[in-house]
Design a protein around this nucleic acid. Structure first.
Lengths: 149, 149
DNA sequence: TTATTTACGGATAACTATTATCCTTAACGA
DNA sequence: TCGTTAAGGATAATAGTTATCCGTAAATAA
């Protein structure tokens, strides 16, 4: 599962994967990968774009989306979809895992609990589905937002 | 939690709740509630609208959305949000519960597992969040879609 | 019953995150 | 260095949902 990998090592992994599949590692792509590897707050496409504008003033938001789409296809980024908000991305742990989401400020953190094998098997046994992914989100207020109420 | 309530009883509950809060129960709203109470396949807004066009040829899709928004606000319907697909609605069990979702045909079924108290408490202890809701989705292929591959 | 007020329904415009399109430019191999 | 092809940038298009506006129906009071 490649857990507990440093941001730089994770960056190398993503670059290697792109090269293996004959995709070019352009300066723009490298920059997006770097932000993803070093971000633990699950940034949105616009967050990533905003962070890159300093060094890449002409960086298009479309390029960020295209790079994210490529990484999704390679299984190198996890997309957290929201219908009413913008999607958020996790490049450090691209496999399904639980998230705790603040409905006040939008913060997203990863809890340590990760064990879904058993419960996933239970669901398959009961429903006959062949389950390949899952989503486990908890919604509430983070400590900061609780205090500032 | 009002589990295992018959569709007709569930319909009465929703109507009662609307009247309590001084909302009118118009023929259009009644029709939307009825579809929600009798549907177990988690219909979309358009599904509901399509089912009603026979008896209400002038029913507007906006009316369906408005009624769903009202029910959401009252906590009488659960909205399952998808960023790439249309949202789906559960009027029978308006509280958070797990779903098993077919990525082939879009079918959504409710497994029997419902116990989230313990795991929810664990998340609160670890993160300091005050958790009020959750989402637990399993994605895979239903038996029918597995066979027709 | 009638008048009055207010909420509701219907049609449609607006919104917004994301994707597609199109053309130019940059990357890589020979 | 040249030629091929993928990638970037700007912008149009998409689609589910929400907002707006006005006519109408529902509830209340006289």
């Amino acid at each position: 599962m490649n857990e507990n990998v440093s941001p730089d090592e994770r960056l190398r992994q993503m670059i290697a994967r792109l090269k293996e599949s004959d995709n070019r590692v352009t300066p723009q792509r490298y920059a997006v990968l770097k932000v993803l590897a070093h971000s633990f707050e699950h940034p949105s496409a616009e967050d990533i774009h905003a962070q890159l504008l300093d060094n890449f003033p002409t960086m298009s938001l479309a390029t960020v989306y295209k790079t994210l789409a490529l990484l999704k296809q390679q299984g190198e980024v996890l997309e957290l979809e929201f219908s009413d908000l913008c999607n958020r991305y996790d490049g450090n742990k691209p496999y399904p895992h639980p998230h705790v989401i603040c409905t006040g400020c939008g913060a997203i953190v990863d809890p340590s609990f990760q064990d879904f094998a058993e419960i996933s098997q239970k669901m398959m046994d009961e429903t006959g589905f062949k389950i390949v992914a899952h989503r486990f989100d908890f919604y509430g207020l983070c400590p900061d937002c609780q205090n500032s109420e």
